[in-house]
Design a protein around this nucleic acid. Structure first.
Lengths: 230, 230
DNA sequence: CCTGAGTGTTACAACTGTGTGACAGCTTTT
DNA sequence: AAAAGCTGTCACACAGTTGTAACACTCAGG
């Protein structure tokens, strides 16, 4: 039915096995890795649709791997769900900042896992080399690298384009300035957070009055792309 | 109190009867099925909150039914507790057992059964930070940082949002102003207790007449979030 | 009916977060 | 080499938010 491939990265064989069973029942194809290196190789090789990544790994930590994946163009679009052992607020936030698309705290039920997986896969539009996204007449077409509204091409700068693409593939969710810097600018650049504001402004301006409502400010939190007018 | 519906699937009428008695004493509504086919029909028809599923069934085995339920979207979210006759140490079997949301080995005490049931049901709707919480049409969605009623976004300020989130994850219990300051404002700020009153007022106003009954004053004690109109 | 404590409500000044335009350094195009 | 475009940062303007005080109201007990 779905046939999606899931990479499970955890050093505990028992946990991997449990997840594999749960996911195979839900008709996912599973591949496994015990450490970050093996995981990285498998990701490049097999290009899974999503990665389940344990927080604690021997050697390179899970978060380190996540950061690296998000940095490389070929892997940046693969959704990541972090598995964390304890309920750690800091970890959660750090994980999301780095680019994990969701996180689950152990212990979790297989049902919960599958539900989250589905949600993330639904949300994350596949790397869409040529998968135009359309929202309320606004069209972003990655294949032609163009943004269109009412058959008229909009003049959108490179950064604004990436920003818009990220937003359109991650709608209805708030992102902090920090998260946006990680996701759109790419993890390890040092840029002021307020810079995001400026590019948001430029993006809104480029979208015009017809569509600028899509980029919404969430005071004290960040920004959100939503079709529902705030 | 709970009124949850439990489907009991077992081919032994005596065992079903024992379970029914135990669960009805704990205020669960019970429906029964003797085989997989009957069970499947009842699940689709009655949408129970949880399924108690015997491992060994005539015809289609219990695990077969479980797999099918998890595959179909309309039933995948219903938790399953497996009843197994023997203790199987084999990893694969254990994995399958865990593939359900919990399992119990016969013989078991009624008290244990009820305890497991409660635990699974509690996990089924985790008060997780990032799952939307819904009460009487009022929805708070942390991922989009939004409060909605009747498909319309409510205008809730940052502090009111945090306050509401705390209340919705801690319903049916009174909190003093001091406790609320600790929990919502964060332990070490010096703020007058009466400030809580003002934000309660703002929150009520934001919720509107439709929902402001949820925030209840407990004279001399503090405030409470409850679905029962005081 | 009166009283005092507890709570609701409003107004407001200080504060904080965000919008906006300008600008200098850079890179790419011409 | 010049022009055009892009980027990041800043300063200032502006609007939303916050905590507090003041006053109005409610409730329980005498």
């Amino acid at each position: 039915m779905s046939g999606k491939t899931v990479l499970i990265v955890d050093d505990e064989p028992a946990i991997r096995e449990m997840i594999v069973v749960a996911l195979e029942m839900a008709d996912y194809e599973c591949i496994e890795a015990a450490d970050a290196l093996e995981a990285h190789a498998l990701i490049v090789d097999r290009q899974p649709d999503i990665v389940l990544l344990d927080w604690m790994l021997p050697g390179t930590s899970g978060i380190e791997l996540a950061r690296r994946l998000k940095k490389e163009d070929t892997t940046a679009d693969i959704p990541i769900i972090m598995l964390t052992a304890k309920v750690e607020e800091d970890n959660k936030i750090r994980g999301l900042e780095i680019g994990a698309d969701d996180y689950i705290t152990k212990p979790f039920s297989p049902r919960e896992l599958v539900a989250r997986l589905k949600a993330v896969l639904r949300r994350a539009t596949p790397p869409g080399i040529d998968n135009p996204i359309e929202v309320d007449g606004l069209i972003l077409d990655p294949s032609s690298h163009r943004v269109t509204a009412n058959d008229a091409s909009l003049n959108v700068g490179p950064t604004e384009y990436r920003l818009l693409q990220f937003f359109m593939t991650h709608q209805e969710r708030v992102y902090t300035r920090s998260q946006l810097l990680d996701q759109v600018w790419g993890g390890n650049v040092y840029v002021e957070e307020r810079t995001v504001d400026v590019h948001i402004r430029r993006l809104r301006k480029a979208l015009g009055e017809r569509h600028d409502y899509l980029i919404q400010t969430v005071r004290g939190a960040g920004y959100r792309f939503s079709t529902q007018p705030a």
